[in-house]
Amino acid sequence: MDVHEALYTTRIMRRMKPDPIPMESQCRILDAAIRAPNGGNAQRWHFLAVDDLALKARLAELYASCRQQEYADIAAGRLGAAPHEDAVRRAESLARIKKSGDRFVEHFTEIPLLVFVFAVDDHGGANIYPAIWSSLLAARAEGIGGVLTTVLRYEACTVCDLLGVPTADGWRMIAMLAFGYPLGRWGVAANRRPVHEVSSRNQWGESFGARVPEPLWPPDADGARIELDRPAS
Rank of each mutant, 00 (worst) to 15 (best):
L94Y: 13
L48S: 03
E155W: 01
A139Y: 04
D121E: 15
E85T: 06
M13V: 04
Q203L: 10
A95C: 03
I128A: 08
E70D: 09
R15E: 12
M173W: 01
S65K: 12
R28C: 03
A131F: 07
A87V: 04
D73V: 00
L137A: 11
H107F: 08
R230D: 09
R35H: 15
C157L: 10
C27R: 15
G145V: 01
S134G: 03
R230T: 10
D102F: 12
T158V: 08
S65D: 15
R11S: 10
D51K: 14
F208Q: 10
G164T: 01
E61T: 14
T167E: 14
E155I: 00
L136F: 10
S207P: 11
A95F: 07
P231Q: 08
D161W: 00
L228Q: 13
V120W: 12
Q26S: 09
A6K: 02
V105M: 07
D161S: 09
V195W: 05
S200I: 00
D169M: 06
R140Q: 02
H196D: 07
R153G: 10
N202M: 09
G223P: 03
S199T: 13
F116Y: 11
P20C: 09
I128C: 05
R201I: 02
H84R: 09
P166F: 10
K56T: 13
A141H: 07
L177Q: 05
L137Y: 15
S207C: 09
Y154L: 01
A42S: 15
D169R: 15
R230Q: 07
M176K: 00
A82K: 12
L59Q: 01
A57P: 00
K99W: 14
C160H: 04
L59D: 03
H84C: 09
F118Q: 01
F208C: 11
L7P: 02
E110G: 06
H107V: 00
E197I: 00
N202R: 14
G209W: 05
V147M: 04
P219S: 04
A76Y: 06
A119I: 01
D2V: 03
A168N: 12
V147H: 00
E92V: 02
M23F: 12
S25I: 02
P182F: 04
D220W: 07
G145T: 08
D161C: 01
L79F: 06
A6E: 07
A81N: 11
E155D: 08
W204N: 01
C160A: 10
H46N: 05
A32W: 05
H123M: 12
R96E: 09
T9D: 08
V105A: 14
G170K: 07
P112Y: 04
D222N: 11
A126K: 14
M1Q: 12
D102E: 15
A95H: 10
L228R: 14
H107P: 00
E85F: 10
M23G: 13
L79K: 12
A87G: 09
R35I: 01
A138F: 07
G209K: 10
V147A: 02
E106G: 05
P215T: 03
G39H: 15
A224W: 13
C27H: 13
G39W: 13
R193D: 08
H196V: 02
S207R: 15
E142V: 02
E24T: 10
V159A: 03
A224T: 13
W204D: 05
A72K: 11
R67I: 06
V117D: 05
F118L: 11
A190H: 12
D19P: 03
F179E: 08
V159C: 08
